[in-house]
């Protein structure tokens, strides 16, 4: 690990000021991904500003009936929050589908959104990677790509975003609140927060330099059945090959899709709003026409073309699970 200096901030304003005045500085929260990458010298901050004690570790109700989740709320606490379990089940389900108990105890809401791809070529410093070293090329394109993106990828990068939590937040239309180095705040729709790789895969979010996530807000509950189905290569503690986040209303055995987002397919959580409205109220949603729309424009590699049928089947299985429930 490269040498760096360290300081602990007490307020968000102090933290953004500290990062702004030190070139090469980074925020550190849970550290579960950043430290991993620092050990490999893929991340080489000169200065770390510890944001663990900013007091942003509460889940509060908002005036419009939604929830405001502090950026430092740990993944375990968010998944276990009684309001999240009752009203935003897809979010609890997605969080506990990821990582391990130890990691979820440390990992934070803001940090989860900022985690980087687990593409093996990004991690292997002996290989070219446009995300790690812009302009060097993409080793995954001609390499082993069984768990890479099939949607929204580019000639420069076919990495996926690894988060489960972000997929649920995308389905729920969450908003990311931030503070800029000058202390000003802004709100970013989760749909706009993560970028597709294009020819700048090293730029993964729309955050500006030194901009700090302070909270994630959820709109009022939508009701319905909340499901998160994750397909992976072991029963637990593995990244998704395909994941489906579904919020649906079920009446008389007919599923009406309300929200639908996918993980494991792209450089960001994947949601096609038109696919949610394919079936009229009162019709029973069928997986294949929805999957056709979601997968339009898919560009699989020879190793990950299995994800095309897997999306269909995982969606069909998720709709079947929903169909067995009933909502008022």
């Amino acid at each position: 690990m490269r040498a760096f200096t360290y300081e602990r901030a007490e307020t968000a304003a102090e933290a953004v000021a500290a990062v702004a005045r030190t070139p090469g500085a980074r925020f550190i929260a849970g550290g579960t991904n950043l430290l991993d990458l620092m050990k490999l010298e893929i991340e080489t901050p000169t200065h770390l500003v510890d944001v663990n004690r900013l007091g942003l570790d509460h889940v509060e109700e908002t005036g419009d009936g939604g929830l405001r989740i502090g950026a430092l709320v740990r993944n375990t606490d968010l998944a276990a929050d009684p309001r999240v379990r009752r009203d935003y089940g897809v979010l609890s389900r997605a969080i506990v589908a990821g990582a391990s108990g130890q990691l979820r105890n440390r990992a934070t809401t803001g940090g989860n959104l900022m985690q980087r791809t687990r593409c093996p070529y990004f991690y292997d410093t002996a290989m070219p990677c446009n995300k790690r070293e812009p302009g060097t090329g993409c080793a995954a394109l001609g390499g082993l790509s069984h768990n890479h993106a099939i949607l929204g990828s580019s000639e420069a990068c076919i990495a996926t975003h690894p988060s489960d939590m972000a997929v649920a937040l995308r389905a729920l239309d969450a908003t990311v609140e931030t503070m800029a180095p000058d202390g000003s705040g802004r709100s970013i729709a989760i749909a706009d927060f993560h970028r597709l790789p294009g020819d700048t895969p090293h730029i993964e979010t729309v955050l500006g330099p030194g901009e700090l996530i302070t909270a994630v807000t959820l709109p009022p509950p939508r009701g319905g059945i909340h499901l998160y189905r994750k397909v992976r290569e072991r029963a637990s503690y593995a990244f998704a090959n395909v994941a489906v986040a579904l919020v649906a209303k079920v009446r008389s055995g007919r599923v009406v899709v309300d929200r639908l987002a996918f993980g494991g397919l792209a450089h960001k959580p994947w949601r096609v709003e038109a696919a949610e409205r394919l079936f009229a109220e009162g019709e029973d949603a069928a997986a294949d026409p929805i999957a056709d729309l979601v997968l339009a424009g898919a560009r699989p590699t020879e190793h990950n073309a299995y994800k095309l049928p897997l999306v269909r089947r995982t969606l069909a299985a998720t709709l079947d699970t929903a169909r067995q429930g009933e909502t008022s």
Binding site: Y6, R8, I28, G30, G31, T32, L35, D36, L48, D50, N52, T76, S100, G101, Q102, L103, N105, R106
Partner: peptide, 23 residues
């Protein structure tokens, strides 16, 4: 998980956290 310890009552991977963060 071999490095698991209990920090303030909760289990954590001690390899993925800096000691200075635990003052």
């Amino acid at each position: 998980g071999a490095c698991t310890v209990i920090v303030n009552g909760r289990r954590a991977n001690s390899c993925l956290t800096l000691a200075v963060m635990h003052d």
